[in-house]
């Protein structure tokens, strides 16, 4: 079984996000960037499948050359090899271009399963996996919290607000996972040392077969028009308990109103 996982190198979400107001784009400092924590769930799920059924896990990433740091992390976890598509003209690509680039590389690998996060932890568009499934002509199973493979069939549980849904599809398939699919392993030091020796196949746009003019900011079919800071308003309401028990009803009513319960 061959599994392809998507791995994105993103600014550390735990640090304050810096936005370039002119370019209307997140400033990506490689020294402050990490492998998308969301992708780690998919990588872990893929590794567990490969450990159970045999096969190889290949990481595919699109990003600057420095993104190999993120790929090494995936490799330290156990990913065998990786393909990194890096090209100056890809800068500023929109979701559609990203999906085109990734899926054309993935198609050349002819995997049985493609695993991605539900969305990236920097841009949060959540559009790339769906687009890729269409381009790869694969069924997509989204919001998956558990994956079972039996022969050519995949059975997955999809997370729901109030439970889960069991769905089945034939291989090959594209799966997007949630954080409950598996607890990502912390790479052992030995894994980190081994990761240094694993192959990363770096390709430019030409090798992928996409015209540079249709990629990057120039080819983007969506544009960021404006960026503004989120105003977080803290609303505190103190309910005094007067001993009658009314305060409980009041709190419950408030929480219902806020749709918290």
């Amino acid at each position: 079984m061959k599994i392809v996982v998507c791995a994105k190198f993103i600014p550390d979400p735990n640090l304050a996000l810096v936005v370039d107001p002119d370019k209307k784009r997140v400033v990506r400092d490689p020294s402050q960037s990490i492998l998308d924590p969301g992708d780690e769930f998919g990588i872990e799920a893929a590794l567990q499948l490969a450990e159970k059924h045999g096969g190889e896990v290949v990481a595919v990433s699109m990003g600057p050359e420095s993104a190999d740091a993120g790929i090494r992390r995936a490799m330290a976890m156990g990913v065998e090899r990786a393909i990194l598509i890096t090209d100056q003209s890809l800068e500023g690509s929109d979701a559609l271009t990203t999906a085109e680039v990734l899926s054309s590389v993935i198609a050349s690998e002819a995997p049985d399963i493609v695993v991605t996060a539900t969305e990236s932890t920097d841009a949060y568009t959540g559009m790339v996996p769906g687009a890729m499934a269409a381009m790869l002509d694969m069924p997509q199973l989204t919001f998956v919290r558990s994956i079972e493979v039996d022969g050519q069939t995949v059975t997955a549980q999809r997370d729901y607000e109030n439970g889960y849904q069991t769905v089945r599809a034939a291989l090959p398939v594209l799966i997007t996972v949630t954080a409950s699919v598996a607890e990502p392993r912390y790479p052992s030091f030995k894994g980190m040392m081994q990761a240094k020796k694993k192959p990363i196949d770096t390709r430019d746009l030409g090798a992928v077969g996409i015209d540079a003019g249709s990629a990057g900011e120039a080819g983007a079919r969506e544009k960021v028009l404006d960026l503004s800071k989120v105003q977080i308003e803290k609303q505190t309401r103190v309910v005094e308990d007067d001993g009658t028990g009314d305060s409980v009803d009041e709190i419950v009513a408030y929480l219902k109103h806020a749709q918290a319960i």
Binding site: D12, N14, I34, E183, P184, R185, Y186, P187, S188, F189, K190, G191
Partner: peptide
């Protein structure tokens, strides 16, 4: 930890946080 990557799961976050 270093060779087998085995340790109580709770520690993963500690390592990740220390790293990052």
């Amino acid at each position: 930890v270093l060779e087998q990557g085995e340790f109580p799961a709770e520690v993963t976050n500690v390592f990740n946080n220390l790293e990052r």
